[in-house]
Design a protein around this nucleic acid. Sequence first.
DNA 1: TTCAACTGACCAACAAAGGT
DNA 2: ACCTTTGTTGGTCAGTTGAA
Length: 293
Amino acid sequence: MKTLKEYLEKKYSKSTLNSNLYNIRRFTDYYGNKAEKANYRDVLQYIEYLRKNYDLHPKTLKHCLYAVKIYFNYLLEIGKRKDHPCSELNLKDKINKQIQVDNLYTTETLENYFETYKIRKKKHLENRNKILISLLIYQALTVREIAELEIQDINLEKAEIHIKNGYRQQKRILPLQAKQILLFYNYLEKDRENLLSKNQTQKTENHFILGQYGEKINPHGISKMINETRKENEKIQPMKIRQSVIANLLKKENDTRIVQVFSGHKKASTTQQYKQTDLEILQNAVNLYHPRK
DNA sequence: TTCAACTGACCAACAAAGGT
DNA sequence: ACCTTTGTTGGTCAGTTGAA
């Protein structure tokens, strides 16, 4: 007889498998050996339990239910059950599709991050890290896009940067800011050459941003690199920067399509999520200048 | 030898985006 | 609008490298 894991492995990729296994375990832990015989009402009760005891995002809750559905599909397949208790069950929890615009960074805050950046040690990495920050706050790139940048994507004469098709983002050409040009030039002439000379494997000579041993960087590490000198509560998150930049741009720019191209969103609806209504902007302004601060 | 500064692999949680 | 997949992040942890 097939085990649950084997069943899942056949149908899903590794990350999905892990996520589903986790949620199924959550369910079976809750009902113990009664889990296999659960009926529609039991499933509902389980969802209610999750709702009450964990402050889960509606989407997460749906994931949990989805995993339970998969679990019963498995039981059907191996013949332990004849019926599916909840294949028709759908949750109606409201999902707030809007991106939480009010706690994003302002343009000034972002500028300030860039201007005041200082590295504590490893002076030779300072320019690289400044470039990382500038790519986040001026081009709103994702960490992955930054890691994939190659030398030929940077055109200093035209002050342009080419971004390849990301896993989700559309390829695009973005202008470079004046203050980036000199920074990039210095980095390419000096710092990057230095880093490259430490590379033994010689595999990464095309990548623009290099790690301290001249290797291609791991997107994962970018937030660590730029947060090195920051205290716990002042850490900046690359994704949040991107969202802030896009939201700030939307405020200035009336044409959503321009912002869509800038951010590389494939769907206009994604860009639309960043837009605040006038009422929300007012509400946020009230919150911001409230005397309690 | 010790230490800082990573890397790389993993996990849980969640968000974004793709397909239909 | 629903179903499904996968990237990102913040953790942890062990390992590596180069400098003090």
